[in-house]
């Protein structure tokens, strides 16, 4: 399994740390209802198919990455830096 880091190029999966679904990007407001926090922290669509998740180039540039990926075929559809996405 390989990811193409936008900064470092194509690298083996072992350089990266996987965090979880990109849901983690959408942190609720501090005063959001407990249900919103429960959903943010715990509940997942957990799709068998195309998903968006978060990886970290741990053994590389330290970029957090938004990865579009297929959980059935393991196809990597796209990799972008979180920082670019958020800018």
């Amino acid at each position: 399994m390989r990811l193409t880091c936008p900064l470092c190029g194509p690298r083996d999966r072992r350089e990266f740390y996987y965090y979880g679904a990109a849901d983690y990007l959408d942190r609720p407001a501090a005063d959001a209802a407990p249900e919103a926090w429960d959903a943010y922290l715990h509940l997942r669509d957990n799709i068998a198919g195309p998903v968006r998740d978060l990886w970290y180039h741990d053994q590389g540039c330290g970029s957090w990455l938004v990865v579009d990926r297929d959980t059935v075929s393991h196809e990597m559809l796209s990799v972008r830096a979180v920082a670019e996405d958020r800018a």
Partner: peptide, 13 residues
């Protein structure tokens, strides 16, 4: 393997 997957197969690392 530490990535969400339904493939029922893994990788070399």
């Amino acid at each position: 393997d530490f990535y969400a997957s339904y493939a029922a197969r893994g990788n070399l690392p």
